[in-house]
């Protein structure tokens, strides 16, 4: 009587099915269901009502503001993140560990606290308050404040994705480039950047998604001036508080769609460039 051979790392079928079922129900309950509810509620009064809610002046300006804020914050964080990751992965310098800890700070601080920091620094009673008032510069309750708060909150995304990637890739190729006569800039452009492009893309997509969805920090610094400093998440809250449920869920549905679009884009690129991706992970 021959015993069926099972590899040591292979789990029994029952266990596989059980774990699979748990994972799927978890994802279904906590991720898919809420998302489905958002779309259902947005369309509760028919597509016409949804469209009206979205084309409302305030909603449109909230969409515009969110896109502008993300459009400034994400490129800046990408540049900072690449610079920080490059310094940390390719060089040794005093204070390196401190820098790494500092980069993680926005993740451990509550977004509301982050927003409050800017109020304390740039507010009328803040450190720079009087100076800013004298020069008629408005940071709080205006776009600059929103952008700053968004930058703070989404800062770690690019750096944290790139640091392990670049550390893992090591310095060999950069050293080779130097011995072959390349300047620092040429090395960065021709050797470092192409090696991190997939990690970078993923990080930028994540950073963008997070920037669009930021609520806490922006809520504190924006002052929620209707039509001027209301981003999409804030607009959702405002509409909900005013019992405009269809409106709130409609704008929320836009946010959800942007998130799904981000994921779809990432998946598409991964599928299209699978070979290159695999090659860049191999040594």
């Amino acid at each position: 009587m021959a015993r069926k051979f099972r590899k040591p790392t292979d789990d029994p079928l029952v266990l596989k099915l059980l774990l699979g079922a748990i994972a799927i129900s978890f994802v279904g309950l906590f991720l898919v269901l809420p998302l489905a509810v958002v779309f259902k509620e947005a369309l509760a009064k028919g597509f016409g009502a949804t469209l009206a809610a979205i084309s409302d002046q305030d909603s449109l300006s909230s969409i515009r503001l969110s896109l502008i804020a993300a459009g400034i914050a994400v490129p800046l964080n990408t540049v900072f993140g690449i610079a920080a990751a490059w310094a940390i992965a390719k060089f040794d310098f005093p204070g390196k560990t401190f820098l790494v800890t500092l980069i993680d700070l926005p993740f451990s601080v509550s977004p509301v606290v982050a927003g409050l920091i800017y109020v304390l620094v740039f507010g009328a009673q803040g450190w720079f308050g009087p100076y800013l008032l004298d020069h008629d510069v408005h940071i709080l309750f205006a776009l600059p404040g929103i952008v700053l708060a968004t930058i703070f909150v989404t800062f770690p995304f690019v750096a944290r994705e790139l640091i392990p990637l670049m550390t893992d890739q090591g310095r060999d190729e950069e050293e080779a480039a130097a011995t072959l006569g390349a300047s620092g800039f040429q090395t960065f452009l021709r050797v470092t950047l192409p090696n991190i492009k997939w990690g970078l893309l993923y990080a930028v997509l994540l950073c963008n998604a997070r920037a669009l969805g930021e609520f806490g920090a922006v809520s504190v610094v924006s002052g929620k001036i209707r039509g001027e400093t209301v981003t999409m998440p804030l607009q959702v809250q405002l509409m909900y508080e005013n019992y405009d449920y269809v409106g709130a869920f409609s704008v929320a549905a836009i946010l959800a769609m942007l998130a799904l679009l981000t994921l779809a884009l990432k998946t598409l690129l991964e599928w299209r460039y699978a070979d290159e991706l695999a090659a860049s992970h191999r040594h």
Partner: peptide, 20 residues
Amino acid sequence: PARQRKAGFVFQQYALFRHM
């Protein structure tokens, strides 16, 4: 500096540019 020396270096782990 290294880049001016024209000293060709061959590494133990090759250090070839993987994306080229």
